[in-house]
Write a protein that binds this DNA or RNA. Structure first.
Lengths: 238, 238
DNA sequence: CTTCCATTAATGTCTATACATTAAAAGTCT
DNA sequence: AGACTTTTAATGTATAGACATTAATGGAAG
């Protein structure tokens, strides 16, 4: 693959920094020095360094110069693939079986329902089971705001999973995901053919579109069938 | 705060896209149109749009134009704060009690140890309990490569947690985190004063520095005391 | 109707230059 | 020495133009 000049400059420093050859706090050459070193214009150097700034690898201060930043450990990127997509990638056959589908009034004593309905709007409730190769692996309890997503009322969710349909049809702007562990309830255990109390990974997510609540979903995964992997490293772009 | 011109252009489109005013698939004006609209040069427009590309908000194709990208739900930003830091933020008192500290040869039948030791290097094993307000909330099993981090052998880990010390002293370049659910083993249940099989959130992490393995850690959290929250939204930069 | 080719409209890269802004560093005056 | 001012070296922003690259499009040939 042919790299353009500013990409070459960027990756050169990326490699140096990520390999530790340039340590946090080290000073980089000035733009003037780099334009001589690479025999190019200052704008080209600047473009490369700007990219490194927005990637968080370097800090720049006027008059002082350019420095390798100290690593920030706080946030990592977490890969949460679509369940059907992930399973088929791994060669499994995914299926979704609706278990309960209905439109109803919210129970505002339940915090998620109060949030989603804003106290009054009807909710579309979609409960179902995810199967991998005919083996149940997850129970999904989903609520959709009938007011924010009226078109969802006409969809046949035995043909497409609620998650995939929402993804393709309702762009969201904000999402909050909570990850925890829990034991299976009696109902869940029954449907998944496990014993109550079996440890499971529980993912709850709320999704907004510009301050309108869209959906709340709680997914319970059998722990031996699913886990999340997040990787943080050099491969920031591609 | 005064925005420079390319920042204004960028944030204008950022707002449009994140609010849904411009939906995925919509076509944006060409660079030529934008340079007239904002009365500026093409490079300025280009800088703004390039930033949006690397933020993943738009896609650009030669001859065809610029389009709002379909949302990728794949990656979210997950905040995994330092345990002591997070607890003290919430007003709790954190403590760490070492339970087992020793240097030993790896057991290469165990996959993480084979990886960390590269088959032969000695390992520093640090097992301990995390407490919040004197209540045990997590069991931590950590291995550190004695070859990659020789200085760790001289540290007193009853004064600082292994995680905090590593964070401050050993810059890493890559990390892989696996999140799953599990039931407590007998030993773990004993130390945490719970029943075996209690559902727990399990976080495993491997950390590299430029292809040298640094550390492997497995943390088991009581599910009622800890969960992870990830939020994805407009605040991409700042 | 299909295949192939030339056109062309869009993005991608790069240059050379200019001026603005900031903060470190050096100089000046008590 | 300490407080203030000036210089200056670095980054930050922006311009106008040039050429490269790509792929959608439309037209010509079969």
């Amino acid at each position: 693959m042919k790299l353009s000049l500013h990409e070459k400059i960027r990756t050169d420093f990326e490699d140096d920094i990520l390999s530790g050859r340039r340590a946090p706090g080290d000073r980089l050459p000035t733009e003037k020095e780099l334009m001589e070193q690479y025999d190019c214009s200052r704008m080209t150097v600047n473009k490369a360094l700007s990219a490194l700034v927005s990637a968080g690898l370097i800090d720049r201060r006027k008059k002082a110069g350019t420095f390798v930043s100290s690593p920030r450990v706080h946030s990592m990127i977490l890969d949460i693939p679509d369940l059907p997509a992930q399973l088929s990638e791994q060669g499994h056959i995914h299926a979704y079986t609706p278990h309960l589908t209905r439109v109803r009034a919210p129970d505002t004593r339940m915090e998620p329902e109060a949030w989603l309905s804003k106290g009054a709007d009807d909710l579309l409730q979609l409960d179902g089971i995810h199967l991998a190769d005919d083996r149940p692996i997850a129970y999904e309890h989903r609520l959709i705001s009938a007011r924010s997503v009226p078109s969802a009322l006409d969809v046949d969710f035995s043909a497409i999973t609620p998650g995939s349909w929402l993804l393709q049809n309702v762009p969201w702007t904000e999402a909050e995901t909570k990850i925890s562990a829990c034991g299976l309830s009696g109902l869940e255990a029954d449907l998944l053919k496990q014993k109550p109390g079996t440890p499971c990974l529980c993912i709850e997510r709320r999704t907004w579109r510009a301050s309108d609540p869209i959906t709340y979903v709680r997914q319970v995964f059998l722990s031996d069938a699913y886990d999340l992997v997040a990787r943080f490293g050099p491969t920031s772009s591609s």
